[in-house]
């Protein structure tokens, strides 16, 4: 097999160039979080921020070359989901008179 270019250099350069749109989208989510006039708007912005940050962390484990760091994104996804459930239970029980 004739070698065209180095695989390691290609993967690292491509992933480094793809990190910048993720950082821009995190910034846009935080603008909605500071601006949102009601409470559920803020919860939605934190939700989306957490899920996309978890995807970003799995991309970073290839760049940092340390394979144990991938367990941090499962934990982040599960606890951000439970924050949704807490706010939903608070809003719904106030309305039903509990």
């Amino acid at each position: 097999m004739v070698e065209v270019m180095d695989l390691e250099w290609w993967v690292i350069t491509y992933l480094t160039a793809l990190m910048i749109p993720y950082v821009i989208s995190f910034f846009l989510y935080t603008i909605r979080m500071f601006k949102g006039p009601t409470l559920p708007d803020r919860v939605i912005a934190v939700d989306a921020l957490g899920y996309d940050l978890a995807a970003f962390l799995t991309i970073l484990t290839i760049l940092l070359k340390s394979p144990i760091m991938i367990v941090c994104s499962v934990v982040l996804i599960l606890w951000i989901y439970s924050l949704d459930i807490y706010v939903a239970k608070y809003l719904e029980s106030k309305e039903l008179g509990g």
Partner: peptide
């Protein structure tokens, strides 16, 4: 909610 963002 702001405290949760600081933690993230």
């Amino acid at each position: 909610i702001f405290s949760s963002v600081q933690s993230v």
